[in-house]
Amino acid sequence: MKFLIIDDDEAVHMYLTQLLSPYARCEAVFSGAEAIDKYRQAFEEKDPYDTVFMDILMPEMDGHEATKKLRELEKELQVNGPDEFKLVMITSLKDTKNVSQAFFKGYASCYIVKPFNKVHVMSELRENHIL
């Protein structure tokens, strides 16, 4: 498995990479624009991401916009059905609007609120068939 972590906080990269590296190869970027480039590159190299971990609050392009662009890129590349990436939202936002947007517009598999708790993260990922 291969995971892409998108967050503007390096501490989040380090934490999730350490937690998830026994289960998948992890790569991390700091912005939505970098994520789009990485996704396209992985597709072209025939080594796509299984799961994308997306922060919402990021400068320049927030996580909802980045997700929208990644989903559009999937359609452009004719990636569909079971080959689409699973989306895990990772954010400090827990209001109804952001949660609803993540699930109904981004097709998120799960929504994990920061600060992280290892037991909760692992439980969410297992319950939602990420791990």
Rank of each mutant, 00 (worst) to 15 (best):
R25T: 12
Y111R: 08
R25S: 11
N80S: 07
P59G: 14
P115D: 14
H13T: 13
K68A: 11
K68S: 09
A102P: 01
Y111L: 10
L87S: 08
P48L: 08
Q18Y: 04
M54S: 08
H64G: 02
L70P: 06
M89W: 07
I90G: 06
N98C: 13
V88A: 09
S100V: 06
K118Q: 12
K114M: 15
L19F: 14
A66H: 01
C26L: 14
P82L: 09
A24R: 10
P115V: 13
F85S: 00
H64C: 03
L73T: 00
G81V: 02
T96C: 12
D62P: 08
P115C: 15
Y23I: 03
M54C: 12
D83N: 15
K75I: 00
P59F: 11
L57V: 15
Y111A: 09
A42P: 03
Y49W: 02
P59A: 12
A108C: 06
L16R: 09
K46S: 09
Q18I: 09
G63I: 02
R40P: 00
A66N: 09
I36E: 02
T51D: 06
L57P: 01
E74S: 08
S92D: 15
K105V: 03
E60R: 09
Y107R: 11
Y15E: 08
E65P: 08
G32R: 00
L57C: 12
L73M: 02
D83R: 14
K86Y: 00
D83V: 12
G106E: 04
Q41G: 05
Q18H: 15
T17Q: 15
N117F: 10
F104C: 02
K118Y: 10
N80L: 01
K86W: 01
L16E: 10
D62T: 07
F103S: 03
E44A: 13
D50K: 02
Y15K: 04
Y49H: 01
L93E: 13
K86T: 05
V113P: 13
T96N: 12
E44S: 14
D37H: 10
Y111D: 02
L73V: 04
T67Q: 07
L87P: 01
L73Q: 04
Y39E: 01
P115G: 13
E27P: 00
Q78A: 07
A42N: 06
Q18R: 14
Y39L: 04
D50H: 05
K38L: 06
L87G: 04
V29P: 06
E27Y: 12
K114R: 14
L93P: 10
Y49S: 05
L87D: 01
P82M: 04
L19H: 12
P48I: 03
E60K: 09
P48D: 04
G32H: 00
S31P: 02
Y39T: 01
M61W: 04
E45V: 04
K105W: 10
L87V: 06
N117D: 13
S109A: 13
E72V: 05
L77H: 03
A28P: 09
H64V: 05
F85I: 07
D37E: 10
K86N: 05
A28Y: 03
K105I: 09
A28D: 07
E65S: 08
H64Y: 07
E27G: 07
K69N: 12
K75G: 04
L19G: 05
C26H: 11
M58Q: 06
T91K: 15
T91I: 13
S109E: 08
F116E: 10
S109V: 05
